[in-house]
Simulated scan of single mutants.
Amino acid sequence: MSKQWNIFIAFFRVGILGYGGGPASIPLIHKEVVDKYRWMSSDEFGDLVALGNTLPGPIATKLAGYIGYRVSGVLGLLNAVIATVLPTIVLMIILLSTLSSFKDFDWVKGMTAAIVPVVGMMLLVLTIQFLQKAIKGMGWMPTIMMSIVIFILLSLLNVHPGIIIGALLIFALVKKDKVKEGSSS
């Protein structure tokens, strides 16, 4: 029962503190899953986030579902997903019914503005961790070149991220098969 409680608390904290949507929740999930409870390594988490981003739907619930299942089966999956979405559901009901009457107050605008740099820094830290993993796996030059190309595709050419992820997955599969063919001959 304590494992279920830990799963619930870990993902409830993510749900309650994950201001800014799924991407802002990723560093919080990392902190709980990798640093606090040690349910997986940082490398495993990075792979999970990469895979989770290739699938449709909110990333926080996908991560919660998989991690909950991995830690404690189907019950863990349900527990983690419920814990992730419960704060949002409750807060949406409460806040939307009351916040709309306060939205023009300076303290509400200030509170919202103050959260943005915090979320930005959390995403930057996670980005640096992913870049370090990429450098470790591919080396400096391929990582830099790939980062530049992806930046251009996303920012300047407005290519949908799903197309880029899909193309890179296909590229990785083709490259993996070519490496297998080369080693078997």
Score class of each variant (00 low, 15 high):
L168I: 07
Q132G: 03
G162I: 09
K133S: 08
H30S: 00
G18F: 03
P58K: 04
A83P: 10
L157Q: 14
G162V: 11
P117K: 01
F130I: 04
L99I: 10
V149P: 11
V81H: 04
V49S: 00
G22A: 15
T112V: 13
N79K: 03
E181W: 04
S155G: 10
T112H: 05
L95N: 05
L173K: 04
A80H: 03
L173S: 10
T127L: 15
V71H: 00
G20H: 00
M111Q: 02
I94T: 15
I7F: 05
Q4C: 11
K136N: 13
D104M: 08
K176F: 15
F11S: 04
G57T: 10
W5F: 12
I82W: 08
A24P: 08
P142C: 13
L17I: 05
G162D: 08
W107V: 15
M146T: 13
W39S: 03
L123E: 11
I7V: 14
D35R: 01
D43E: 12
L168H: 04
A80G: 07
P58C: 12
D106E: 12
V71E: 03
L55F: 07
I152D: 09
F105G: 00
L96V: 14
I16D: 01
A80N: 02
S147M: 10
P142Q: 10
P117N: 01
G68W: 01
A167Q: 05
I89K: 00
G139I: 15
I135G: 07
A10Q: 04
F8E: 09
L91I: 15
G18P: 06
V108S: 06
I148W: 05
M145D: 03
W5M: 11
S147K: 04
K136E: 14
V34F: 09
K180S: 03
V116G: 00
I93M: 12
Q132K: 08
A83T: 04
T61C: 05
M121H: 08
L17T: 07
S97K: 07
P117Y: 08
D106P: 06
A134W: 04
V108A: 09
M1K: 01
G22N: 10
G20F: 00
P87Y: 09
D35M: 05
W39A: 02
I148L: 10
M146I: 14
P87L: 09
K36F: 13
S100M: 08
W5G: 07
Q4E: 12
G57Y: 07
S185Y: 02
V33D: 06
P142T: 08
D43Q: 13
G20A: 02
V108P: 05
M141L: 13
L75K: 07
S41T: 14
H160P: 02
V90C: 07
I152T: 13
P58A: 14
S183T: 14
G162C: 03
M122P: 01
A83L: 05
L17K: 00
G15T: 01
V85S: 00
H160C: 07
